[in-house]
Simulated assay, not measured.
Amino acid sequence: MSASCPAHATKHLPVLPYTFGDTIFHLSQLQNGVSNGTALWLGGQCLAVYLAESHARYKSSQHPCPRALELGSGIGLTALSLSSLGWDVVATDIPYVIDSVLSNNIRINQHVLPQGSGQIELRELDWLVSPEDWHWDHPDIIASSTLSPLPVDRSVTLLSPPYDILCTADTLYDSALVTPLLRSLHAISTLSAAASPNNRPPFILLCIERRDPALVDRFLHEATAVWHLSLHRVPHKKLARAVQKHYPQWTSDDWEGVELWKLRLITSPRSVDKKSSCK
C-alpha cells in the first residue's frame, strides 16, 4: 500500500508508513470504533500538504521558531509535519487518543525529523472543560475532565501563547462538539492575542470533509454569529495545487468534499487582514 494513498484506503493498516517531503513517518492507528481520533482522515492529509506549501505566510517574529497549537491531533500527522517544517507545536487531544496512538507516534517519529525541526509538546485538552478551568502552566494537561493536575514544576519551559496558528482537522463529526470546539478556539485566540505584542489573534486553519452539510453549515454560522470569527474558505484551486503536487496519483474523487477554512477572531474592525486571508 502506497504511503500516500487517501486515508480511506489505509485505515486497515495498524502501522502506516507515511511520506511527507523527504521524511517517512510510521504512524500507528486504530479502527476499533472507540474514537474517530485514532485513525488517519483526509482532512489531516490535505492540511499537511497545504502547510507544506503555505506555512511560511503564517510565521511571525514573536518566537525563535513559529508556534502552533493543534486541537484534536489524532495520530499526529499535522504535528509531525509542522515540526519537520521548523515549527514548535503543542499537540492536544483527549486521554484515550493520547494513550492509544498519539504519544507513541510522536515519540517514535521524532528521531526521523530533519535537522532544524521544531519541538512537539503533547498535552491533554478536553474541549468540554470550560476555559475558566484550563491550566496553561502545566506540562501535561491544559484541560481535563477526569484528572486534577499535579503541582507544577516551574523550571519547565512550555510552549505557551501567543501562537502563530491554530490547526484542527477532521473534528466536525458530532453536533455535541460544535460549541465546545468553537469555545476552545475562541478562548485560545483571545489569550494568544492578549499575549501578542501587536494584539493580533492567530489564524485558525480548519480542514474538514463535508460529510454532514447541515453540521458544517451550523459550525460556520455559529463561528461568525456567536463567536465573532471571520470566515474565509481557502480557494479550492489553491488546495488542489498542493494536493496534486504531493499526491500526483490522486484523482479528484479521492478527496472530494474536503474543504479548508481560515478563521480569525475579530478583535476590532481592522483586526482582520482581508486582503491576505484567502490568498
Rank of each mutant, 00 (worst) to 15 (best):
residue 114 P to K: 15
residue 126 D to V: 04
residue 251 T to A: 13
residue 96 Y to T: 13
residue 13 L to G: 01
residue 195 A to G: 00
residue 174 D to Y: 05
residue 23 T to P: 14
residue 176 A to K: 11
residue 203 F to P: 09
residue 57 R to E: 08
residue 218 R to P: 03
residue 60 S to N: 03
residue 25 F to M: 07
residue 136 W to V: 08
residue 223 A to L: 00
residue 191 L to W: 06
residue 137 D to N: 15
residue 219 F to K: 04
residue 169 A to H: 10
residue 19 T to K: 14
residue 89 V to K: 06
residue 269 P to Y: 01
residue 265 L to Q: 12
residue 198 N to D: 15
residue 175 S to R: 12
residue 207 C to Q: 08
residue 55 H to V: 04
residue 156 V to N: 04
residue 44 G to C: 14
residue 170 D to A: 05
residue 150 L to M: 10
residue 52 A to G: 02
residue 197 P to K: 08
residue 216 V to P: 06
residue 41 W to R: 07
residue 77 L to D: 07
residue 40 L to Y: 01
residue 236 H to E: 15
residue 137 D to P: 11
residue 34 V to E: 05
residue 86 G to W: 04
residue 63 H to A: 08
residue 193 A to M: 00
residue 102 L to K: 03
residue 176 A to I: 10
residue 175 S to D: 11
residue 128 L to Y: 09
residue 150 L to Y: 07
residue 131 P to S: 04
residue 196 S to H: 01
residue 86 G to H: 05
residue 158 L to F: 05
residue 249 Q to N: 15
residue 65 C to V: 11
residue 206 L to R: 04
residue 190 T to H: 12
residue 218 R to A: 14
residue 66 P to R: 04
residue 258 V to F: 00
residue 145 S to W: 11
residue 53 E to I: 02
residue 229 L to R: 01
residue 240 A to F: 07
residue 105 N to A: 13
residue 82 L to V: 00
residue 133 D to I: 06
residue 107 R to V: 02
residue 17 P to V: 11
residue 262 K to D: 07
residue 156 V to C: 10
residue 177 L to K: 08
residue 255 W to E: 08
residue 142 I to D: 06
residue 209 E to I: 05
residue 118 G to P: 01
residue 212 D to C: 11
residue 63 H to Q: 04
residue 201 P to S: 15
residue 103 S to L: 02
residue 24 I to Q: 10
residue 202 P to H: 12
residue 179 T to Y: 01
residue 216 V to T: 09
residue 272 V to R: 01
residue 74 G to K: 00
residue 257 G to T: 03
residue 86 G to R: 01
residue 179 T to E: 06
residue 29 Q to F: 13
residue 269 P to M: 03
residue 244 Q to Y: 10
residue 82 L to D: 02
residue 35 S to G: 06
residue 41 W to V: 05
residue 230 S to C: 12
residue 102 L to I: 09
residue 233 R to F: 13
residue 62 Q to G: 07
residue 12 H to Y: 12
residue 230 S to A: 14
residue 169 A to F: 02
residue 120 I to V: 10
residue 262 K to S: 11
residue 35 S to H: 12
residue 112 V to R: 08
residue 233 R to Y: 12
residue 275 K to Q: 13
residue 251 T to E: 09
residue 12 H to L: 12
residue 91 A to I: 02
residue 48 A to Q: 08
residue 40 L to H: 03
residue 62 Q to F: 10
residue 161 P to W: 08
residue 128 L to W: 09
residue 145 S to P: 12
residue 253 D to N: 09
residue 196 S to C: 04
residue 41 W to S: 08
residue 50 Y to C: 08
residue 271 S to C: 03
residue 216 V to H: 06
residue 225 A to P: 11
residue 134 W to Y: 02
residue 204 I to T: 03
residue 43 G to K: 14
residue 72 G to E: 02
residue 117 S to Q: 04
residue 105 N to L: 05
residue 51 L to T: 00
residue 17 P to L: 10
residue 90 V to N: 15
residue 38 T to W: 05
residue 44 G to L: 07
residue 165 I to C: 06
residue 69 L to E: 11
residue 136 W to P: 01
residue 180 P to K: 03
residue 41 W to G: 00
residue 36 N to I: 14
residue 214 A to W: 01
residue 156 V to Y: 07
residue 248 P to K: 13
residue 60 S to R: 05
residue 118 G to V: 05
residue 8 H to P: 07
residue 222 E to G: 09
residue 205 L to S: 09
residue 155 S to L: 08
residue 62 Q to L: 10
residue 149 P to R: 07
residue 64 P to K: 05
residue 242 A to P: 09
residue 260 L to K: 00
